[in-house]
């Protein structure tokens, strides 16, 4: 764009985040276009979760900028970031275990956004049929896969333009991972932009367009998944 502002949906520039005195992110920089599905690949402790928490405002970055829809959000509290249309699905799922599925969805509900139909519990139950049967059960009684589906559904209730998913395939049975991939592709068709963190490369290849390799708190390599250099991946991400 000729304007100084760019056209990225999410633009993270030179983010530095700390836990106490320990620096976790070093000039983390990444950009996501509207409609794109992008993955952060990296080992445990590379800084993927901290990146997400810094974007959401759960961790306050010490320096750097996060722009979402051309608005600076690095100093906003999480609920305002969410209100702008950025949904977050955390790594450990964090289903409200003492609330029913329907109540969990209600917590996530936000007003519809212009030009898009609002997600309702019924529409989400079409996407996640397993949840429909158990709508009055407590979140704590669900299996791991069902909890993962519920957290995604709960975040969608906020009608986000973009969702951030932290290692969604972790700890799930292969057949559930297949379902998850199918779900994410459906969401992509619905024009929801997605940023996810993964360690499962084959899963990432099925759903993502582009990858950032994250190593020691910074991006070391960037490429489309189709052209991902195997040596680079081995160097930074393999276990």
């Amino acid at each position: 764009m000729t304007d100084q502002k760019n056209n990225y949906l999410l633009d993270v520039t030179d983010l530095n985040s700390f836990y106490g005195k320990a620096q976790i992110l070093f000039d983390m920089t990444l950009r996501i276009n509207r409609g794109e599905v992008v993955v952060l690949l990296g080992r445990n402790g590379a800084g993927k979760t901290t990146t997400f928490k810094s974007i959401m405002g759960i961790v306050k970055p010490r320096s750097g900028k996060v722009r979402f829809k051309n608005k600076e959000i690095q100093s906003l509290p999480p609920f305002k970031t969410c209100g702008l249309g950025l949904g977050y699905v955390p790594e450990d799922r964090r289903v409200f275990s003492r609330l029913t599925i329907l109540e969990n969805l209600e917590v996530g509900r936000q007003p519809a956004r212009q030009g898009r139909p609002a997600w309702t519990a019924e529409r989400l139950f079409e996407l996640f049929p397993n949840l429909a049967e158990r709508r009055h059960q407590n979140g704590g009684n669900l299996s791991g896969g069902e909890q993962q589906m519920l957290t995604i559904a709960r975040t969608l209730m906020g009608n986000p333009e973009m969702i951030i998913l932290d290692e969604p395939s972790e700890g799930l049975a292969p057949v559930i991972v297949d379902q998850l991939a199918a779900t994410l592709l459906k969401l992509k068709n619905e024009k929801v932009s997605i940023l996810l963190a993964e360690q499962n490369l084959s899963f990432a290849k099925r759903v993502c367009d582009r990858a950032y390799l994250v190593y020691q708190g910074t991006v070391c390599h960037e490429s489309t998944l189709a052209e991902l250099d195997n040596d680079q991946y081995e160097k930074y991400c393999s276990l």
């Binding site: 275990s97 609330l99 109540e103």
Partner: peptide, 24 residues
């Protein structure tokens, strides 16, 4: 009520409730 559900959600996990767009 929605208020009650949010109160119960916040009782269980304030940070997640925040990240789901609830101004606590």
């Amino acid at each position: 009520t929605r208020w009650g559900i949010l109160v119960r959600a916040a009782t269980e996990d304030r940070e997640m409730t925040d990240a789901l767009g609830v101004n606590q």
